[in-house]
């Protein structure tokens, strides 16, 4: 099995304050920590597990600047074989479609049985790339994949897609294909010390838009379906009543409220 895994580097915003920057179209990232997109981590693991079982090769691809190398190297350390980074000022402002075009241009001439992506990026939440990429490559796809089994002939896969309410939809799909991986499909490993050392020495091939045969008008904002006009802070209806005080006081207040409501 030859596999390609697309990984995105995203800021961790779940636990930190998010501030709109002066442009109004981006956020202040100076104090945020970054890492691999959550479901991409599961996608990497899935590819490596298949390689361990059936043999083959795992190529890691990421679109972004030099800072993405850290994320790429972590995937290499876990068992990825080689890596490509797509980097060009022309990629700035790309939406899911423009990213998919760049990825497709990089992937189309490679040999692959499965292209893995995450189901959705934690920052933009588009959930566009896997399905758009498959269409651009002209291969079948499935996204929200939470179960995967390569069937015996190695030409088909049994894929479980997770639907609302946790219902699983099973389908059979022909390879080559693109699969958008959902969190929870496996237990992502940690990279070993040895793996990290080896990955540090691996070459990451960098490709520009021109290297990919793409005109600047096809990528970035120019090649996107939509551009982000501006950010705003969501209007919250009625905010929670925030209980004030130290933990001793807030806990006492809450316990009192629960008592008044007849819950204790």
């Amino acid at each position: 099995m030859n596999m390609i895994v697309c990984v995105k580097r995203v800021p961790d915003t779940a636990e930190s304050e998010v501030h709109i920057d002066a442009s109004g179209r981006d956020i202040d990232k100076s104090r945020l920590s970054f890492g691999i997109n959550e479901c991409d981590n599961y996608a990497v693991e899935e590819a490596i597990q298949i390689k361990e079982k059936l043999g083959g090769k795992v190529t890691v691809i990421s679109l972004g600047g030099k800072e993405n190398d850290e994320v790429i190297r972590m995937a290499l350390a876990k068992g990825g074989d080689d890596a490509i980074r797509l980097d060009d000022p022309a990629f700035a402002g790309s939406d899911g479609f423009a990213v998919a075009k760049a990825l497709a241009a990089a992937i189309k001439d490679l040999e692959y049985d499965i292209v893995f992506t995450g189901a959705l990026a934690d920052d933009d939440g588009y959930a566009v790339v896997p399905v758009a990429l498959a269409e651009l490559l002209g291969v079948p796809h499935a996204t929200y994949v939470k179960d995967l089994e390569i069937l015996e002939d190695g030409k088909r896969a049994r894929v479980g897609r997770e639907l609302e309410g946790g219902l699983m939809e099973y389908l059979e799909i022909e390879l080559p294909c693109v699969l958008g991986i959902q969190t929870g499909i496996n237990e992502p490993r940690y990279a070993s010390f040895k793996g990290i050392k080896q990955a540090a020495k691996k070459e990451i091939v960098v490709k520009s838009a021109a290297d990919l045969g793409l005109d600047p008008s096809e990528v970035g904002e120019a090649g996107s379906w939509a551009i982000l006009e501006k950010f705003s802070v969501p209007e919250v209806g009625e905010m929670a009543e925030i209980l004030q005080g130290d933990p001793e006081e807030t806990a006492a207040k809450l316990a009192q409220i629960l008592k008044e409501k007849g819950l204790i």
Partner: peptide
């Protein structure tokens, strides 16, 4: 939805129609 997300981007690419999700 899990259905829509699995189809809309491919349809948009095929038809050359701009798509915004979610």
């Amino acid at each position: 939805t899990a259905q829509g997300v699995d189809m809309a981007p491919a349809l948009a690419v095929e038809l050359g129609a701009p798509l915004v999700t979610d």
